[in-house]
Each structure stands twice: as C-alpha cells, then as structure tokens.
Amino acid sequence: MYPSRFSYDAPTSVEEVIAILDQNGGEAKVLAGGQSLIPMLKLRFASPARVVDINGIPGLEYHRVDPDGTLRIGALCRHEDLEFSKILGNFPTLSQASSLVADPIVRTRGTFVGSLCHADPQGDWSATMIALGGKIIAQGPNGRREIKARDFVLGPFVNALAFNEVAVEAIVPPAKGKALGGYLKLERRVGDFATASVAVALDVDGDIVTRAGCALAGVGGRTIDANDAISVLVGKSLNSESIKEAAEAVAAAAEPRTDHRGSSSYKRHIVETFVTRILSNIANSEQKAA
C-alpha cells in the first residue's frame, strides 16, 4: 500500500495551519491521529497534495470541565484520554462509548475531534455528540465560530468545515438537572465499526425527563439524528410504557441497509433493543439509588 506523493508540513500553531490550508485551496488535509486519514492515503481513497500535521501544536491535548459544568475537548485529546478520564462522571454517554471506539491500539492515537471531522456514518463519537447536543469550535482566517454537532455532519465523510478551517475544540454543555445516559454498540469484534449503535443522553429533574437526546451509528448513510424521535420522553418518567414508546420511535428513525452485517430489519431491531436496554438500565439504577 503506497500512497501518492504528498508534501508534509508540521506547523506549531493553529494560525500556521490555517494559513497553509488557506493557501492550498482545498488541496491540503489536516492530520490528527491519522487513524482514518493514513488508511485513506494508503488505499488512495484520498490523495491530498499536502498533509498538515497538527500533532506538534502545543496545548491541544486537554479535556476539562469548566466551573459551570461545560466539557471542553481539545483537538489533540485522544480516545484513550477519555477512556481513562476521571472527570466524565456527568457524561455517562461519553464514558460508556469511550471503551467501544475502535481497539486499544487505535485509541492511543485517534482523536475525538478528528473522529467528528471524519464524519464516518459508523463513527461512535458523532453519535454521542449529537445525542448530547454538543458543538464544535471551528477556527479559520476570520476567527472562530460554533457549529452544532447535529449540523456538523453533512453526509458520509462530509463535515461542515470550510476548506480553510480547522476544528480546535468540541464542547458538551452541562446537563440541566441530573445527566443520565448510555451507549451500546453491536460489533462483531473489537475494532469493528458498529453494525448498529445507540447513544442516549437524558437530563432528568427528579424522575422527570427534561431533555432527551439520541443518535445512531451504522444505520444510515450518515449519523442518524434521533433527537426528535426520543423527545417523546420529555416530561415523562422512565417506565416500561414510555421506554417502549421511545424505543419504537427511535427505531423508526433509523435508515438501515441490508448488507453482510445483517438485514435492515435486524439492524432496526437492534436499535430498538439497545434503546430499551439503555433506558431500562437507567431506570433500574435510578431505582436502586433512590
């Protein structure tokens, strides 16, 4: 596997990156963890003239929770940093997903933000971000702008960044009330992309759901935004009836296709099962806690 010829830059500031992207008019690609870009180069699915390596830029490895509860994830925060993080207690959706992304080797290099930028319909992090109502901070020649995660993924492998923008940070807003959630993924083995996966994030006041978020991976041409479907839970408590209603609504929002991983009806069934399981787990552990 031999990629086509490309030139390589390793700038040390975001401004330099933007300048290089700007000068190359769409012919340059950012290299973060390389866990998607390098395979694409080797398979010659991507043949950019320039590769701009951002790994030498200091100060982007962080993830931290602000005093107001906002989670901020820098462009070079690796999957593994989140997997072993001690500060994701209020973000169960993320912490559950963190050990299901790829395999332990890939997780040491791949980045959270890079994964969002890659916009793989089977990518795990995009689903969690859409469910959590997260945002991406893009920086370009004219400064910074915020893009909602649900508007960030435009299609398979297409994101909302302009050619001269770089994603510098991902933001997850704090929950109003108590944050509950979960992530389940059907994979055939570690490192396999999802046959179907489900991210759920709830804000709960007492036992009443005040906000419900959900997104799906592997069951559509892009990450499926199922926030509207799961909103049937808002204003309700979790019980077998509301869970069933939500699971059916979310399953209906999936757009699975039959392939060697399974039939579309099987995948839709898995979505329904997983929504049910996540919500039942939440209901059970809340009951135990009470």
Binding site: L186, R188, T195, T258, D259, H260, R261, G262, S263, S264, S265, Y266, H269
Partner: peptide
C-alpha cells in the same frame, strides 16, 4: 454464526444456510 444469523434462526425457527452473498430482508 454471526449474531444476525442466530437471531434470524431464533425468530423464524428455520435454518439459515447456504451462502447468500448478502442476506436479503
């Protein structure tokens, strides 16, 4: 014995055999 095949067998009580290149719906 991929999960989808086992599930299909459980649901239908029928064999899942042969080599369909792609399982149809």
């Amino acid at each position: 014995l991929m999960p989808n095949r086992v599930y299909q067998a459980l649901q239908t009580g029928q064999d899942v055999s042969g080599m369909p290149p792609v399982l149809s719906d």
